[in-house]
């Protein structure tokens, strides 16, 4: 039953894809035009429609054009032709590097701090207003401040990743730690467990599912934000790639980049989903 369900699901998925591709093909097939002749010939050439017979409708490539473009990008992902022209793999690596760095710094700060906030109602009460105030600020709103104070756009991008990924981790850690079952803490108390052992062997594993959830949310946000941040700062990264292709009105490349962003985002998310599965416990 389940097997046939899965099979039918896959068939339906493929059918949806086929309908999508067909619609795409129909929507982007250029209308036939007669070849220009005589005096109009140069004009047509300057308008760029001598080769294809007609301009691309709205600049959207056909599925076949898109496939060949994607293949071209994927077959040489790591080329480097100067500071402003690098392969998709290099750009993704830059973005991932920035995300990894900003995110790691955020985790190093948010998780221990969240721990203290979660364990101390006093600290919680003292810091809560700040967290509530800072949390809803759009990460990109920090960009001008970062550029002015840090004076380096690459570092500013990392800062923006840091600031956007710090809140979910901080809040979830504090929430998870504060919500550790009293019974488990009492077990530790009756066993005279020292503070470090309690933190690492009781509170951390008890709060781990909530913390990892926060980390997963943070990673999702960080990956969303890096694209926007790189579109602003330029230079390198997948966001810059999108901007650069958009600047050329090359929708095919933009769509390709969007697809890659989606794939990487999905991989990152499933990484954390796996991690979450590992630390989740049934009561």
């Amino acid at each position: 039953m389940t097997k046939s369900l899965r099979l039918r699901g896959a068939v339906l998925s493929l059918a949806i894809l086929a309908v999508f591709l067909l619609t795409w093909q129909i929507a982007t097939t250029p209308a036939k035009t007669t070849a220009p002749s005589g005096a109009d010939r140069e004009y047509a050439e300057l308008m760029g429609n001598s080769a294809t017979g007609a301009a691309l409708a709205n600049g959207v490539p056909t599925p076949a054009q898109f496939a060949s473009l994607a293949w071209k990008q994927l077959s040489d992902p790591f080329y480097d032709r100067g500071p402003n022209d690098k392969g998709i793999g290099v750009q993704l690596a830059y973005s991932l590097g920035r995300v990894a760095l900003g995110y790691a710094i955020a985790a190093l700060i948010a998780i221990p701090l969240g721990f203290f906030i979660g364990m101390s109602p006093l600290l919680y009460a003292a810091l809560d207003p700040y967290i509530q105030l800072l949390k809803p600020i759009s990460p990109l709103a920090w960009m001008p401040i970062a550029l002015y104070t840090i004076k380096d756009s690459a570092t500013s991008a990392i800062f923006v990743i840091f600031i956007c990924s710090v809140w979910p981790m901080l809040i979830n850690t504090a929430f998870g730690v504060a919500g550790v079952r009293k019974d488990w803490l009492n077990v530790a108390r009756t066993l005279e467990v020292g503070p470090l052992r309690k933190a690492f062997l009781v509170i951390l594993p008890a709060a781990a599912p909530t913390i990892i959830t926060g980390m997963r949310i943070s990673m999702g946000i960080a990956w969303l934000v890096i694209v926007a941040a790189e579109m602003l700062i330029g230079g390198t990264g997948i966001g810059y790639f999108v901007w650069n292709q958009w600047n050329n009105l090359s929708l095919g490349n933009v769509i390709f980049a969007v697809l890659m962003i989606g794939v990487i985002g999905m991989l990152l998310d499933s990484l954390f989903a796996n991690l979450q599965k590992k630390v989740t416990y049934a009561e």
């Binding site: 077990v187 108390r189 009756t190 005279e192 009561e283």
Partner: peptide
Amino acid sequence: TGPGLDRGVVFQNHSLLPWL
């Protein structure tokens, strides 16, 4: 004045650490 290892407690809801 506080909990200690000289007293063992069996909790009503067993309070086992579920991840262990």
